[in-house]
Design a binder for these strands. Sequence first.
DNA 1: CGGGATCCACTATGATACTG
DNA 2: CAGTATCATAGTGGATCCCG
Lengths: 133, 133
Amino acid sequence: MPDTRDTTAPAPLTADFFDPACPQSAMPIRIGEKWAGMVVACLADGPRRFSELKVPLRGITPKVLTETLRALERDGMVTRTAYPETPPRVEYELTDLGRTLLGPIQACREWAAENLPALLAAREAHQEGLDRR
Amino acid sequence: MPDTRDTTAPAPLTADFFDPACPQSAMPIRIGEKWAGMVVACLADGPRRFSELKVPLRGITPKVLTETLRALERDGMVTRTAYPETPPRVEYELTDLGRTLLGPIQACREWAAENLPALLAAREAHQEGLDRR
DNA sequence: CGGGATCCACTATGATACTG
DNA sequence: CAGTATCATAGTGGATCCCG
């Protein structure tokens, strides 16, 4: 296999990021904000209740969790089922479309597990370089 | 293969999102903002110059591109090489660590290619549901 | 329990103009 | 060319209180 990194200049960039009408096509999982990926991951094993989701997402406010779930619902990623009981019970579950997100999310989490230490080390080294000036 | 979705309640959530000291461990590629993933993708084929990167990321302002590149540099994802010429020339290139990002990014882009239409359709259907009220 | 309503703070992103 | 400086804005996240 030849070295793909030749000494000549690489081909001109013919990016298509914006052609498919999606400015975020490289990173669609950032559906709106920072919690969506974690919420989807929490729903991987089956339906969950509102307060059940708050536990692992520690610190998330009800408002933000609601907004995140509404955005995911709007995009067809989760379904919301309210049971007319007292006390009320609401369950959120991934749709088939939502489950397709688990692949990319898992890829990202594995990346983090493997490479986050290196990232943090690089960041710290960089900080030291700044401190020594 | 048995159905993994049993009728009993799924196991309690034992999320580890925050245990590894990284609140974003599920989504580290969102290193800071929305452009980082696209910038890394643009660097996939070799070093690129500042103004070369601006083309595919159409509309990005120099300020934001600089900030994005600095953040990636700080985290050890790209190197910055300035050539003392006139006119000045600066090249950005992925490090080995930065290249590990290409996998997850590619997974996300493939997800978008396959499922973005469904997402947009769901969003539109949801909007119609609201309109008809 | 599962939110909705307000108000507030921060940060990412952007437009514009200028410089080594 | 490759940025920096300044200003302005909007999206996001959060605190707090309230309700069916």
